[in-house]
């Protein structure tokens, strides 16, 4: 199976649209993969990443969502514009590198919850729990791309054989 773009959407920064995106991803994934666990997790991933894009991106710029699949993985990417010198970008990178140092998503999840409890998140006034949910509940690796000036892309990459290994399974 070659790499295939399943969905590409250009979305205005409008909180009311997040639920439609969640529904679109959920039903698309159900029709293509017939995978109950994937159809629950990827909509959550799309909503969490979109919320971050809306919160920290430039409000007058569109956000793009893409959903790509091949034989090995499904990748959901959100790209948004950021202001030059945005203070959110280093916080995001620090959060991701903190998160990805945990080999076990559950350990990352409990560590993040402990941080919230302690009020000691790394340089972040926000809890950053959305990204942790994506890593643990969504079973996705997170990759940040800032190679295009003024834009940031966050990709959530989920192995096709990760189904059934999530929490509660």
């Amino acid at each position: 199976m070659s790499r295939q773009i399943l969905l590409e959407l250009v979305i205005r920064t409008d909180w009311n649209r997040i639920d439609s995106v969640r529904q679109a991803v959920s039903h698309c994934v159900a029709a293509v993969f017939g995978d109950v666990e994937l159809k629950d997790s990827l909509p959550m991933v799309s909503a969490e990443l979109l919320e971050n894009a809306f919160k920290y991106g430039l409000p007058d710029e569109d956000v793009t969502l893409s959903l790509v699949s091949d034989a090995n993985e499904v990748v959901l990417t959100i790209t948004n514009a950021v202001a030059a010198g945005s203070r959110h970008l280093p916080v995001l990178k620090a959060r991701l590198s903190w998160l990805m140092q945990f080999g076990d998503p559950f350990v990352a999840y409990t560590a993040a919850l402990q941080q919230v409890y302690d009020g000691s998140g790394p340089d972040a006034p926000e809890s950053g729990l959305g990204l942790v949910r994506i890593y643990y509940e969504g079973r996705c690796r997170l990759v940040c791309d800032t190679s295009h000036a003024g834009r940031v892309s966050i990709s959530a990459k989920r192995s096709r054989d990760a189904a059934g290994s999530g929490p509660g399974s």
Binding site: E8, L9, R17, S20, Q23
Partner: peptide, 28 residues
């Protein structure tokens, strides 16, 4: 928006696709 999906020929997928396309359109 752009959607390109290989879908198994099953009746239940008709409504899933209708709803997905509908929500893509509302989102965009």
């Amino acid at each position: 928006f752009s959607i390109d999906l290989p879908v198994r020929s099953e009746w239940k997928n008709i409504d899933l696709l209708r709803t997905s396309v509908q929500n893509c359109f509302i989102a965009v």
